[in-house]
Design a protein around this nucleic acid. Sequence first.
DNA 1: GACAACATACCAACCGGTTGGTATGTGTTG
DNA 2: CAACACATACCAACCGGTTGGTATGTTGTC
Lengths: 205, 205
Amino acid sequence: MVEKSQKTKRPDARIKLLDSALRVIRMKGYSATTVDDLCREAGVTKGAFFHHFRSKDDLAVAAADYWSETTGALFAQAAYHDPEDPLDRVIGYLDFRKALVQGDVPEFTCLVGTMVQEVYDTNPAIRDACNRSITGHAATLVSDIAEAAEARGIEVPGGAESLALHTQAVIQGAFVLAKAGNAPSIATESIEHLKRYVELLFGRS
Amino acid sequence: MVEKSQKTKRPDARIKLLDSALRVIRMKGYSATTVDDLCREAGVTKGAFFHHFRSKDDLAVAAADYWSETTGALFAQAAYHDPEDPLDRVIGYLDFRKALVQGDVPEFTCLVGTMVQEVYDTNPAIRDACNRSITGHAATLVSDIAEAAEARGIEVPGGAESLALHTQAVIQGAFVLAKAGNAPSIATESIEHLKRYVELLFGRS
DNA sequence: GACAACATACCAACCGGTTGGTATGTGTTG
DNA sequence: CAACACATACCAACCGGTTGGTATGTTGTC
């Protein structure tokens, strides 16, 4: 039985709109991004937009979920999972994030971090979608952190979850400063500090 | 000759608009905030708005500078400057920031951090104003950090400036996660991690 | 021909900004 | 001090373009 649930149809416009959303919203922010912007960028018409999404806010939720999927796949197949020492995997993750911070600012910054700043108080559905994306990604680090702590017989202050969330906070904050200074280097330096914190916590010079 | 020429002057619409901007923009974001929103909140008319500001973007720049002034005064008069040991002053600063993270999210989050995420790529003037605010605040920490390092005969990895900027990155990122999770506690935990990093760096258990 | 996947045409509300005008203060001159 | 010129602070009504959203086709596939 071949998995042919998507028929021979071309759900072309939907994916093109979501891809456009990732690009445009990261550049202009969510509120400043218009439906026409997205349609133009995707090369489709407004009819197509409202065929696939009930509203602009509905697209934002879908875009956050889409972001979780695409970035999730990127991190899942990355090489930092390979080392046997769980601490090496945690450090490897941070090195991977550092390597991703390259090129122009809009290309490496985070969609959901950008969106949630704008809508956390006005649109709970989008906020929750952004939160799922961030906490879901942080959750992929918890087991490595916990294993690293156990292997070394130490206890992570605040718990493994707290440290995992902290890594995301540092990365999100690094993006904010990189945007303000219009320079990726500020972001890399902060991730470097974070790496040092983890190494100091786990007693590795 | 007192420079008090504001004797019989009316209550200034300009200040009321700026105060409103701090509140409304932190809640709704910059792009979603309309000029009418600000006028309504400040209790003035549109005519008054465009008498004091050439455009909405012009107000944003003024609001960022106003933010620098008001928060600058708040930190300048805080008690964390008192200790003789410079490291105590640095840790005191972080404790102070932790104490500020209370109440509802819109009340303790950062105006310029919110704005710069939206406009960094579309409005250089606002971006630069936000950057001045962040780097200017970070600069107030540099001397304490440098003195603390010298007093202990250690070298701050990346330099004192880099660590000062890192504290701001952590705080900005903590705000993002607090907004996403709709909970201030996430922010406090991240600042706690940051405090621990500084203590580990400077060899204090 | 039924139904999904689009396109075209259009709308009412909204938004940033402008206009013409008023009330009040201030500096200058006789 | 009075009279005038001018500047500042503010208001209410309005304008043209934009925005999210809708109503109604049209096309291609099962």
